[in-house]
């Protein structure tokens, strides 16, 4: 298997993600997890360091570059940085796909409808019709629409920042199932979450961050809620000692 290799620095951080792997990013608030995701996706540019994509330096300067490479990014703030509130579910699903649905500037509407229908069914998105404005949907269904937006791009890597925040329990389970499904289909997932239990359930590997640095890494058998907590705390204890 050819692995995706990505190395980069935030405060001097290196991480790599392999194909089909679910990597969790744990850490306290402000530990730089979201910042890391934003640099990966080209929202912010790194001051130093580089992102590698399949072993090659990836020149990612804008989200559009990252999308072209095959990345998707479900942001933490769904309402401001995710959905386009007054557009329909259909448009929200296909917004990133539009360049591929382009025929002489026109939208290939038949193909668009087919894709939209397929993903509404597959992700069990509850909406009265694809034409419904997305702001009228529940949080969980909005999140599913955003997931569909990236899944229909057939990506290699999806970054998810707090994918289950503000979502009811049923939808939470469904989203977690989807994450597993993605991984089975060879899509890598980088998952950021403050819910340690969620990371424990889903991740193949967990990286613990603190102040933009990697302070620990847990692999398969080693993953447990206590271990994650321990690693997070250890990092802070070290800080305290230095301060003393």
């Amino acid at each position: 298997m050819k692995g995706i290799k990505q190395g980069m620095r935030l405060n001097g951080i290196d991480i790599d993600i392999k194909q089909g792997e679910i990597v969790g990013l744990a850490g306290l608030l402000g530990s730089g997890r979201t910042e890391l995701a934003k640099v990966l996706f080209g929202v912010n540019l790194p001051d130093e360091g580089e992102v590698f994509w399949y072993g090659q330096p990836a020149k990612i300067h804008t989200p559009a570059d990252a999308i072209k490479k095959g990345m998707g990014f479900c942001t933490e703030d769904r309402k401001v940085e995710g959905i386009v509130p007054h557009l329909s579910v259909k448009e929200n699903i296909t917004i990133a796909l539009l360049p591929r649905l382009n025929r002489f500037g026109f939208v290939k509407s038949k193909e668009q409808n087919k894709i939209v229908e397929k993903y509404i069914k597959r992700l069990k998105i509850k909406t009265p019709s694809p034409e419904q404005a997305i702001c009228n949907l529940s949080g969980g269904n909005q999140q599913k629409v955003l997931l569909a937006r990236w899944m229909c791009m057939e990506p290699k890597l999806i970054i998810m920042d707090e994918p289950t925040r503000g979502i009811d329990v049923g939808a939470k389970v469904e989203i977690e199932q989807l994450i597993q499904e993605l991984s089975k289909n060879g899509i890598s997932v980088l998952m950021i979450s403050s819910e340690i239990a969620e990371l424990e359930r889903n991740c193949d590997r967990i990286i613990v961050m603190r102040e933009g640095k990697k302070t620990g890494e847990l692999i398969s058998d080693n993953i447990s809620q206590d271990k994650i907590m321990e690693t997070i705390v250890k990092g802070s204890e070290r800080e305290v000692k230095i301060h003393e």
Binding site: P63, A64, T75, G82, V84, E91, I95, L98, P99, R149
Partner: peptide, 14 residues
């Protein structure tokens, strides 16, 4: 899309 939410649009690659 840009008129509705410029941040979301740019994050969706527009």
């Amino acid at each position: 899309a840009v008129g509705d939410s410029i941040r979301s649009s740019s994050l969706a690659g527009i």
